[in-house]
Design a protein around this nucleic acid. Structure first.
Length: 271
DNA sequence: TACCTATGTACAC
DNA sequence: TGTACCTAGGTAT
């Protein structure tokens, strides 16, 4: 589930399993053989996440940085004990005394130097999961934009980390229609969206899944049969097109906007 | 066995 | 705006 909360969790997992230890790096698939050679035998010094980008520092001064972006398909698998024979297309395998990590199908997997990391970070917007995030910078972009708030929330140079699920869900929870222009959004609405993202995404890191339904709207509280959403979490509108809204019962709508599926309730998010 | 889908991004036009 | 790319799992034939 590679939205920002997943990447922050992966950074913590790298530190927990390999932090301060020398690791073996290999590319069973072969497509990252050269990069793996640069990292092989070095100490894993630090691991950090900014939005959907994972940055893992290797070496005594951490100036060889593994940059991973999972894209839609990318996936990490961690295991304890000796690593088994690789299954499927394993782009990168890290092994240490405590276990191993396999990376499959990333959008980006490369070794950067510090300058390249700075360039990457400079183009990323405020990450709701980072203590150094400045939502005011995002607000300045949003307040003067005629682009829809739905597109702005997915623009990683404005807000880094939320993906299609958090976008759909936070707009539902705040009663904001996704096609409202950024410049039409109120300052208070933006603050509420940001504060909600901070809470929701922190919950996502802890729970390893995206649950956004308030206790009073769960199927149990509403006297409806229990259900399990396909992506593994409880949500209001994401991938619920045609189903009744959990709050008002109206049919959840969907539309492709900027190449991505958008979901909203036409009544709870009137405008 | 073939096809479709996905929580993303970059690039060409 | 359209397309390519990365992968695995589910569904259709």
């Amino acid at each position: 589930m590679p939205e920002g909360h997943t990447i922050h969790r992966l950074a913590a997992e790298h530190l927990r399993m390999f932090g301060g230890l020398r690791v073996c790096a290999s590319s069973p698939q072969g497509r990252f053989a050269e990069g793996a050679r640069l990292l092989d035998g070095l100490m894993l010094r630090d691991a950090d996440a900014h939005g959907k980008h994972l940055l893992v520092g290797f070496g005594e001064d951490g100036d060889r940085v593994l940059h991973v972006h999972l894209g839609i398909y990318g996936k990490y698998t961690f295991g304890t004990g000796p690593a088994p024979a690789p299954v499927g297309a394993v782009r990168l395998r890290l092994t240490g005394a405590a276990g191993y990590a396999d990376l499959r199908g990333p959008n980006a997997c490369e070794v950067l130097d510090r300058g390249e990391v700075k360039v990457l970070r400079d183009r990323l917007g405020a990450d709701p999961l980072r203590a150094d995030a400045d939502p005011e910078l995002a607000w300045r972009r949003i307040a003067r934009s005629r682009t829809s708030v739905a597109v702005l929330l997915m623009d990683q140079s404005v807000v880094a980390g939320p993906g299609n699920i958090y976008r759909a869900e936070v707009l539902f929870r705040q009663g904001v229609h996704p096609l409202v222009q950024g410049s039409a959004l109120g300052r208070g609405q933006w603050s509420a969206i940001w504060d909600d993202l901070v809470v929701l995404m922190a919950d996502g890191v802890r729970a390893e899944r995206i649950d956004t339904v308030r206790p009073e709207h769960t199927p149990e509280a509403m006297g409806r049969p229990p259900r399990v959403d396909e992506h593994g979490g409880e949500v209001y509108v994401y991938r619920r097109a045609g189903l009744p809204c959990l709050v008002c019962g109206s049919e959840v709508r969907t539309e492709v906007v900027a190449g991505r599926n958008l979901f909203w309730c036409p009544v709870c998010q009137a405008v």
